[in-house]
């Protein structure tokens, strides 16, 4: 299957490619949500619990979605990166935003190709990748990170992921220095400890005709202050919400039928002395002894109980 007809495109997080190429970031899927990203490089090998993967022979030129057999005989799937897979696999430099929150942020900020969006802090770049994906190919992300090391790492990742032309990373304190742009943003996203200190900067980054803002905070006290600041700066439609994902395991459940004994000693069921014999006689005849099987979507025992509050608002036309 590999070889032959694959076209050469630069791999990018905002554009699907068909085949794995040198320099790509690919996702090695081991099963059951166990996976990791790998930088594909001629001559390199990657260790997995199923054995070694040789990039030159096992990866490069293969189609994304292929099954690759490792040296010990176990096998893995190689997946094309997406912002969502990246979120599940990226190196954590901070607490990150997950896809459930990212989804509602993207929709509620009304992002689409061409949108100009500001973000702070960049953090581990989980949201950044998703934002870039959505505003590409004609939009832009201005992301501000106060931690120098993190800002640099983010820049590097964006370069590696083929999206550097869609993003500007700035290393400064957004509360003091803002986003470095004014009146050009359609939307602003804040995930910083004191979002209320950045609302003014957010407002001036947004377009004159208005736009949307979102602030993510784990604690309600942060939300309270942020809402007050938003109101003070004239934002409207201030709306705080929380979204939680419930994942269900699909299981086949067997429940035992209880043994209620026989009605009579040694002949068959003779009915109850019930007030409603027609309905009542042998109520569980077709269930006697044995088990009942059914499919069920079973919640995990312990689940995420809180990530943060999302406060959205609109900068209205003045």
């Amino acid at each position: 299957m590999p070889g032959g007809n694959y076209k050469i495109v630069t791999m990018s997080f905002v554009e699907y490619g068909d085949t794995i190429k040198d320099g790509d970031t690919a996702i090695v899927f081991l099963g059951h949500e166990s996976m990791f990203p790998v930088k594909v490089q001629h001559g390199t090998v990657t260790q997995t619990k199923y054995g070694v993967i040789r990039h030159s022979t096992d990866l490069i030129g293969k189609k994304y979605g292929s099954k690759v057999t490792c040296s010990k005989g176990g096998w893995v799937f190689i997946l094309h990166p997406t912002p969502e897979l990246w979120t599940m696999n990226l190196p954590h430099r901070t607490q990150i935003l997950y896809s459930t929150d990212i989804s509602i942020i993207t929709m509620m900020l009304e992002l689409k190709p061409g949108s100009i969006v500001c973000e702070s802090g960049t953090g581990s770049g989980s949201l950044s990748h998703a934002l870039i994906r959505t505003v590409a190919p004609t939009g832009h992300l201005y992301t501000v990170e106060f931690h120098q090391q993190r800002a640099e790492k983010a820049r590097e990742e964006f370069r590696e992921h083929g999206v550097e032309h869609l993003v500007t990373v700035t290393n400064q304190d957004v509360c003091k220095n803002g986003f470095g742009v004014s009146n050009i943003a359609d939307a602003v996203f804040l995930d910083i400890p004191s979002p209320w200190e950045a609302i003014g900067h957010a407002k001036s980054a947004l377009k004159a005709e208005g736009g949307r803002i979102c602030s993510f905070s784990p604690c309600i006290e942060q939300v309270q202050r942020t809402c007050l600041a938003m109101e003070e700066y004239g934002f409207t439609e201030i709306n705080t919400l929380e979204i939680l994902l419930r994942v269900y395991n699909v299981r086949t459940i067997s429940l035992q039928i209880p043994d209620l004994g026989k009605a009579a000693e040694d002949n068959s069921s003779s009915g109850f002395d019930s007030s409603n014999p027609s309905q009542q006689s042998s109520p569980c005849a077709n269930l006697q002894q044995g088990t009942v099987q059914f499919k069920s979507g079973v919640p995990l025992r312990e689940v995420v109980g809180h990530t943060g509050y999302l406060t959205f608002a609109t900068k209205s036309l003045v």
Partner: peptide, 20 residues
């Protein structure tokens, strides 16, 4: 692969001074 069955819970808040 990576089949996932899920549902999302949505909670809206009233955030007002002393009445959140």
């Amino acid at each position: 692969i990576n089949l996932k069955l899920s549902e999302s819970w949505l909670r809206n808040y009233q955030v007002l001074p002393d009445r959140s």
